[in-house]
Computed example of a mutant assay.
Amino acid sequence: MRRYVVSKWVKTEAVLHSTAVRPHIPATRILSEESLREMLNEYRMVYVKPDCGTFGSGVMRVDYNEKDAKPYRYQHRKTTRSFETFEDLYQSLKAAAGGRKYLVQKGIRMLKHNHNVFDLRVMVQTNPAGQWETTGMIGRVSQTGKVVTNYHSGGKLRSVETLLGPYLGADEVKRFKAKLKRLALGTAHALRSKYPGIREIGLDVAVDQEFKPWVLEVNTKPDPYIFKVLKNKRIYAKVRRYYKFNKRR
């Protein structure tokens, strides 16, 4: 059975079948001139990302502000380029994509930590009884000037409490984590119904200004070792134990 799914588009289509998860999936389309134009006009900010890729490589943020002299711009790594016309923007993006299949996704105005955006990684694994279990949550803060939060791209790892504490009270953080747990389990069940060989997933979850969680991406080969930095060592111990158990199966 297929254990790993690389295509972000395929995974998005699979989890959209869940009525509980669907409201938390940002609008996502295959990149084309038409899809980019329509989504920029509707959302004003989108992310363009490779369909197959890891560590945030190739992800670009695209913005449209009709009041600017050069209303179109995109950021790739720490470089920002601006354009007078949509056509010039699109041609530059296509060149940067290098012929690879890309997706365009509604941009989420994420919460920030020390002026840098952050998202949350939620780990879900099958336990020795074969049941899905949410085993860990950790925050990832973007490097200053970058649009991605990935640890391998310079992001910093922080606890969920550290990142949400300035916004929510302790009890509210607990309730929010319980909501994330339900969302993660629902996503795992939805993906496994299509690909029954999957045993672990890592959800990348953005939190918007209204504290709504958005599933940006689902990884079927998540890194278990990022949880090692948490003060609560029992979390990493469980993640690592389940990781090793599932690897042997």
Rank of each mutant, 00 (worst) to 15 (best):
V239D: 00
P224W: 00
R240W: 07
Y225W: 09
K233W: 12
E210F: 13
V215Q: 09
E217W: 01
N246V: 03
F227T: 11
K233H: 01
V215K: 12
F227K: 12
F211I: 02
F245A: 06
P224C: 06
I226D: 04
P213K: 04
K221D: 12
F245Y: 11
V218K: 13
P224M: 06
V239S: 01
K233N: 10
F227W: 06
K221I: 09
Y243H: 06
V215I: 08
I235H: 10
K228I: 14
L230A: 10
V215R: 14
Y225M: 13
D223W: 00
V218D: 08
P213H: 00
P222E: 10
V239C: 06
V239M: 02
V229Y: 12
K233C: 12
Y243V: 02
N232H: 08
K212V: 09
L216K: 14
D223Q: 07
N246K: 11
L230I: 04
K231W: 14
I235T: 08
P213G: 00
T220Q: 03
R240G: 02
K233F: 09
A237Y: 05
K212N: 10
Y243D: 06
W214R: 01
E217M: 06
K212M: 11
Y242P: 09
A237Q: 04
F227P: 11
D223R: 10
Y236P: 07
V218W: 09
N232Q: 07
I235P: 05
K231D: 15
R241A: 13
L216T: 04
K212Q: 14
V229T: 09
K247D: 14
P213C: 01
N232P: 09
V218I: 13
E217H: 07
N246Y: 07
L230N: 02
P222S: 02
W214I: 01
K221W: 05
A237F: 06
K238C: 12
D223S: 08
K247F: 15
D208G: 02
R241P: 06
I235Q: 11
T220C: 12
L230P: 04
R234N: 14
P222I: 01
V215Y: 04
F245C: 11
I235Y: 07
K247P: 11
K247T: 09
W214C: 04
V239Y: 00
I226E: 00
T220V: 03
E210P: 14
Y243G: 05
D208R: 00
P213Q: 00
E210K: 15
N219Y: 02
R241G: 13
K231S: 15
E217V: 03
E210T: 15
R234E: 14
Y236W: 05
Y242I: 02
I226M: 03
R241E: 11
K212T: 14
K231R: 15
K212Y: 05
D208A: 08
E217T: 07
V229E: 11
K238R: 04
L230H: 02
V215E: 03
L230D: 10
L230Q: 05
K247S: 10
I235K: 02
R234S: 15
R248I: 10
V215A: 09
Y236D: 00
D208T: 06
D208H: 06
